[in-house]
Design a protein around this nucleic acid. Sequence first.
DNA 1: CGTATGACGTGCA
DNA 2: GTGCACGCCATAC
Length: 91
Amino acid sequence: MVSFQERVFQVVKKIPPGEFLTYKMVAKLAGRPWAWRAVGNILNKNKNPKIPCHRVIRSNGRVGGYNQGMKKKIYLLKKEGIIIKHGKVAC
DNA sequence: CGTATGACGTGCA
DNA sequence: GTGCACGCCATAC
């Protein structure tokens, strides 16, 4: 039995380049589909650069936030091939 | 143990 | 389409 946070990290680390998941998706893959709230909290407190948390966005298409700065998150996503439009993803 | 917070999501105006 | 308010879970204090 591991913490929900570790479960989320494992899922996020499995996200391939050029792809992205929503907080709800990560929560579901982590085993707590209804705990997307906690997903954001965990990633927020997480400072591990090994976690591509920039590939996790909101369900409405918004990029959401980022500990290192939303600008950095958008930059990374765009560099991966994801189109960002006015702070939104592929919309 | 109880309260408050937060990188959210959905509903309504 | 945008903005505000409420509800939700896990973690921190």
